[in-house]
């Protein structure tokens, strides 16, 4: 089953590291943003404006996580459309590789890169967060991987519908970033006007944000079963749609 998965995954990671722009965009920029924002948090922590620091301290990791997830999805959309346009997908399809292996490979590569990014953030984050603050790094990483995995399926739909490599990333950005104002990241969902709350409730990103911020605050997983269920449903529905409309060439 899934013959060639590990060979291809390892190869794709190697190929990815040969492209400076990809590494910078996917790993370096999120980590750098984190450092810059982290410094401002750290400076505020010392000026004892505890209220603002609280928001920033809890908000920043979730904020960072959402951006990591979105950039992961966007780079998947980009790579799928480039591979399709160049006939790479078709070339691979005419081998004993199962089509699903190719897709799983790319999801794996992206998740591995996400894990590396989180790892780096945790490392640099140590310096800005007072020791003794108990941060559920492992659970939070897991929550981020689950969220990314779910949003990736939206990426597949975008990659399936948008045929040209040039338009896929901007359209993908538009689709994903336009969810940001309504997903509870900047304004809590409860504070939104009622019609917007409805919009918010159908956006997959809302559940990802809710899960991420809850887990960060130390909530148990059991209090986020609803979010998890929503993310799984999003994944199942989007994957089903994508596998119908997906084109290899």
């Amino acid at each position: 089953m899934l013959r060639g998965l590990w060979t291809l995954t390892w190869l794709e990671i190697k190929i990815f590291t040969r492209e400076p722009m990809g590494l910078i965009g996917t790993v370096a920029i999120p980590v750098l943003m984190f450092v810059v924002l982290g410094r401002s948090v750290a400076s505020r922590l010392t000026t004892s404006s505890w209220q603002g620091a609280e928001t920033l301290r809890n908000g920043l990791p979730v904020f960072g996580a959402v951006f990591v997830a979105i950039s992961t999805v966007l780079s998947l959309v980009a790579i799928i459309s480039i591979y399709r346009e160049g006939g790479i997908l078709k070339r691979l399809k005419a081998t004993p590789l199962e089509p699903v292996t190719i897709l799983v490979t790319h999801v794996l590569v992206k998740l591995i890169l996400t894990a590396i990014t989180i790892g780096l953030m945790v490392l640099v984050g140590r310096r800005y967060y007072p020791s003794g603050v108990d941060v559920p790094v492992f659970s939070f990483s897991l929550a981020l991987l689950v969220s990314t995995w779910s949003i990736l399926s939206i990426g597949f739909i975008i990659a399936s519908l948008v045929r040209t490599a040039r338009f896929a990333p901007p359209l993908g950005s538009l689709a994903l970033y336009s969810m940001l104002p309504f997903c509870g990241l900047f304004t809590p969902v409860e504070a939104l006007p009622a019609p917007l709350q409805t919009v918010s409730s159908v956006l997959p990103l809302t559940y990802a944000v809710s899960l991420l911020s809850g887990i960060w605050k130390g909530n148990p997983w059991s209090s986020h079963l609803g979010d998890l269920a929503a993310l799984v449903v999003v994944f199942a529905v989007c994957t089903a749609i994508a596998s119908r409309v997906f084109r290899w060439e």
């Binding site: 190929i15 160049g86 006939g87 070339r91």
Partner: peptide, 12 residues
């Protein structure tokens, strides 16, 4: 099989 139009990963 060899295709009329095919590419591989640029940096493979």
């Amino acid at each position: 099989v060899q295709f009329q139009q095919a590419e591989l990963q640029k940096r493979i």
